[in-house]
Amino acid sequence: MINRREFLKNTVKGIACAALPLAAFEIIDPKKLFADKSGKPGVRWVFLIDTYKCVGCGFCVKACKNENEIPYDANVTRTWVERYVVTKDGQVFADSPKGARDGFATPKIDMGLGKYQEIKNEDIKKAYFVPKLCNQCENPPCVQVCPVGATYQAPDGVVLVDRKWCIGCGYCIMACPYGVRFFHPVYKTAEKCNFCYHRITKGMKPACVQACPFGARLIGNIKDPDDPVAKIIMTERVGILKEEYGTKPQVFYLGIDKEVR
């Protein structure tokens, strides 16, 4: 017959055992720990855009379309440049004719449907250009919704699309809060910026970064503390787009403003 003292003792022992996490029983392999510490640092590609430096020439868009074989005259592009003009009475105008493939050569704002808005120079409070591209989110919603595993996050953070696997359902295009995805007019599969994966993995810069004459677009590795871009992101005031979606975008902006959507 169990007495009161024994019962309480066993109860305490039982609770203590149940509270032990399974991980406490894992035998740690010293080799594994050593590899994690001494192995070469990982890679996590990030992008930095300086909107003060961008002049809206659109050379990035031209280079991107040629480099990544996006039909030049189709109105789709992996990267594009937006122009924001804020007038003194608080109105915000934004346009991106042909994704700024040919730059911005006129002060008239393209309102769509063949309409153009003229803005007097003296009415402009501020005006600037904002290049856009895939944010290679840490939590990419486009990847979550893919029903066939055709889009995924590579170990270095870049989100890729498997053209052989893509069935063209378009869920990912709807899921992206940044509107960076589209159907490739030739392959009829989902298409997006991948930081020029074939170039960055060879130690080259993405085509848009190389083509930018003003250094407005930079790429770096956030896991490398000596990387100049990582240093800027960690020490300066940078903004991201649509933070409220919780996607953790990895394209950072200097000089971004509240008008930018």
Binding site: A63, N194, H198
Partner: peptide, 20 residues
Amino acid sequence: MYGWYRAGNIEDWKNVKVKY
């Protein structure tokens, strides 16, 4: 959620020709 894919596709993307 994020890593369900065909690993060979990473190589496919690395093999794209560099133009610029």
